[in-house]
């Protein structure tokens, strides 16, 4: 009998814990007929960005987190974070896992762990207060809270003034008027209680960015498991786990959108706006793909595969 300790930096009620990690733990126990159980820790062992190394160093057996919290470390993540990929986190997540399994894994970024899943959040959109978002240059000069990474570059390219700060500070930045807009998925706007602080939303088809997540396991611990348990865990991780997570993000995005009803007026971007955004963001996309290619994985080919898989996953 083995107990795997899962490090956790989120409150137990967070949907990523309650609706992904807890069901996953149950599935592992079920698939291994109780030989392997996953124990989710109640208190964090360190800041979110430290969690990948917690798995590498064996401090916890399983950890999850956001690749973007360790800048410079994961270049292949770019593939999943690009604008205009898709409206469904489930489709994007499943496609991301398949692309990862087929191509991205060759970059070697995850060689020191066993990868249980990679997946993404729902699409990030634009939210502001007191701004008409229907014109082509609507975003120009808006002080937009960003977390860094690709979102910072996207905000800059579309003419916003990026205001840096962690997502936990988003409320503070918006309520105090330090920022007057934010790039976020629907779920996060609701989760961080920002709805009263915003009144306009711009929904860009396919979204402006996604956030990439990982769930990984300590390699030595993985290798110490008997073959039948490994096979059992494999049967509930990988694509299945990516799908579970993507479905959760889609559910909470829908709930967030419903909560905005009557409080935030959401406009779908016009063709002219989409065309303008596409032109503005092409240099970001090119630069990100070039970064992926630095790892030895062909960035353009990976994106092509990713898009094909998104289309395929969307029709399944």
């Amino acid at each position: 009998e083995t107990t795997l300790r899962m490090a956790n930096w989120l409150p137990p009620s967070h949907p990523l814990v309650a609706e992904v990690m807890v069901p996953f733990a149950e599935q592992v126990a079920e698939a291994t007929q109780g030989r392997v159980t996953v124990d989710i820790m109640g208190a964090p062992l360190g800041p979110p960005g430290a969690h990948f190394d917690f798995a590498v160093n064996g401090i916890a057996d399983i950890t999850f987190g956001v690749q973007g919290y360790s800048p410079g470390r994961f270049k292949t993540t770019n593939i999943a974070e690009l604008p205009f990929l898709g409206d469904s986190a489930e489709a994007v997540s499943v496609a991301y896992w398949r692309t990862f399994d087929e191509m991205l894994i060759d970059a070697g970024e995850y060689d020191r762990v066993k990868v249980l899943a990679v997946f993404t959040h729902g699409p990030g959109q634009v939210f502001t207060k007191g701004r008409d978002l229907t014109s082509v240059d609507a975003i120009k000069g808006v002080k937009m809270r960003v977390g860094g990474g690709i979102v910072h570059e996207i905000a800059t390219r579309i003419g916003a003034t990026p205001v840096e700060g962690p997502s936990s500070k988003a409320y503070e930045l918006l309520s105090q008027g330090v920022a007057d807009g934010i790039l976020f998925p629907y779920e996060s706007v609701a989760f961080f209680k920002l709805i009263p602080l915003l009144d306009q939303g711009l929904a860009v088809p396919g979204g402006l960015y996604n956030t990439s997540f990982y769930i990984v396991m300590n390699k030595a611990k993985w290798e110490s498991l008997p073959e039948e348990d490994k096979a059992a865990i494999d049967s509930v991780s990988g694509e299945a786990l990516a799908r579970l997570a993507g479905q959760m993000w889609d559910r909470v995005d829908a709930a967030g959108l419903a909560e905005m009803e009557g409080k935030i007026a959401i406009t779908t971007a016009s063709d002219a706006q989409v065309a303008a955004l596409a032109a503005q963001l092409q240099p970001v996309i090119d630069a990100k793909l070039a970064e992926v290619s630095e790892t030895g994985v062909d960035g353009a080919a990976a994106l092509a595969l990713m898009k094909a898989e998104i289309a395929a996953a969307g029709t399944e």
Binding site: R5, L45, G46, P47, G49, A50, D53, F54, N57, G58, I59, P166, K169
Partner: peptide, 22 residues
């Protein structure tokens, strides 16, 4: 959790928390 992981955690705790913007 064993000496190896515990000592790694020590180094991570002292460095990763030293760069907390707040």
């Amino acid at each position: 959790i064993g000496w190896g992981p515990s000592l790694s955690l020590l180094g991570q705790t002292f460095f990763d928390n030293s760069r907390n913007y707040s």
